[in-house]
Amino acid sequence: MADDKSGRDKQARDAEERQRERELATELERGDEVEPPVDPAELTGFEAELEALTFPTTGVAVVAAIGDHEIESTGGRYSIAELLPETDVETFDSPDAIRVQVQRPTVAAAMKQVVEASETVRNAEFSWSQRKAYEKTFEELESIDADDDDEGIQVISDWITERVRDKERLPSSRAVRREAAKFCRTNGYQVRDDEWLGV
């Protein structure tokens, strides 16, 4: 491969794709941690609908095909349209990628809100690593205030959306973690410096 800009860009894209695949495999293995209030039996009909899709596919195509399908979780019923961003920018390489999203409904709903808000900003780049950092922050909030109807997740996703609207750019993942830590401390949740939110 030539050592020029296009060669380096291809190497970076390939490295990012390998990282996505590793993270997807890890997420599937960790499926029973933190939130997964979605009963595997609940996903049976959903699995059949997923297999009928052609991959890779976009969020728009998934929502158009199976957006009205509902899944039951410990937090209530969610339609797929409530959990996946209805955008062409959001792509799913396999059924597993969609499965990982819907297994954590509150995090998925927050990410849907953020991704759709990012679409309103011209030339906004929402990198995979920034997206994963946002998701990790939402997951940490979920584990901290699991008994509070995930108020922290909604507060932070609203904060990100307001930032996007007011400043016309996505806040850094560090700023999101800092805001989440501030929310936790204000509401009496302890955040240690060696934790994800301890920035």
Results as ranks from 00 to 15, higher is better:
residue 119 E to N: 08
residue 119 E to W: 07
residue 119 E to V: 10
residue 119 E to S: 10
residue 120 T to Y: 06
residue 121 V to D: 04
residue 122 R to G: 11
residue 122 R to P: 02
residue 123 N to A: 13
residue 123 N to F: 15
residue 124 A to C: 14
residue 125 E to L: 13
residue 125 E to F: 14
residue 126 F to A: 01
residue 126 F to G: 06
residue 126 F to K: 00
residue 127 S to H: 11
residue 128 W to A: 12
residue 129 S to C: 02
residue 130 Q to I: 05
residue 130 Q to G: 08
residue 130 Q to P: 00
residue 131 R to I: 03
residue 132 K to V: 09
residue 132 K to P: 01
residue 133 A to P: 02
residue 133 A to M: 05
residue 133 A to Y: 03
residue 133 A to S: 12
residue 134 Y to V: 12
residue 134 Y to H: 02
residue 136 K to N: 11
residue 136 K to Q: 13
residue 136 K to D: 13
residue 137 T to L: 03
residue 137 T to G: 05
residue 138 F to V: 00
residue 138 F to T: 01
residue 138 F to N: 01
residue 139 E to N: 09
residue 140 E to V: 04
residue 140 E to D: 06
residue 140 E to C: 06
residue 140 E to S: 12
residue 141 L to K: 02
residue 141 L to H: 04
residue 141 L to F: 07
residue 142 E to H: 14
residue 143 S to I: 11
residue 143 S to A: 15
residue 144 I to E: 13
residue 144 I to L: 15
residue 145 D to M: 09
residue 145 D to C: 04
residue 145 D to F: 02
residue 146 A to F: 13
residue 146 A to L: 11
residue 146 A to S: 10
residue 147 D to I: 06
residue 147 D to W: 04
residue 148 D to V: 06
residue 149 D to L: 07
residue 149 D to P: 03
residue 150 D to N: 13
residue 150 D to R: 02
residue 151 E to T: 09
residue 151 E to V: 08
residue 151 E to M: 09
residue 151 E to N: 09
residue 151 E to P: 00
residue 152 G to T: 01
residue 152 G to C: 05
residue 153 I to S: 00
residue 154 Q to R: 10
residue 155 V to D: 12
residue 155 V to S: 11
residue 155 V to G: 04
residue 157 S to W: 02
residue 157 S to A: 14
residue 158 D to F: 01
residue 158 D to I: 00
residue 159 W to P: 07
residue 159 W to H: 04
residue 160 I to P: 05
residue 160 I to K: 00
residue 160 I to E: 01
residue 160 I to A: 05
residue 161 T to F: 12
residue 162 E to S: 11
residue 163 R to V: 07
residue 163 R to Y: 15
residue 163 R to W: 09
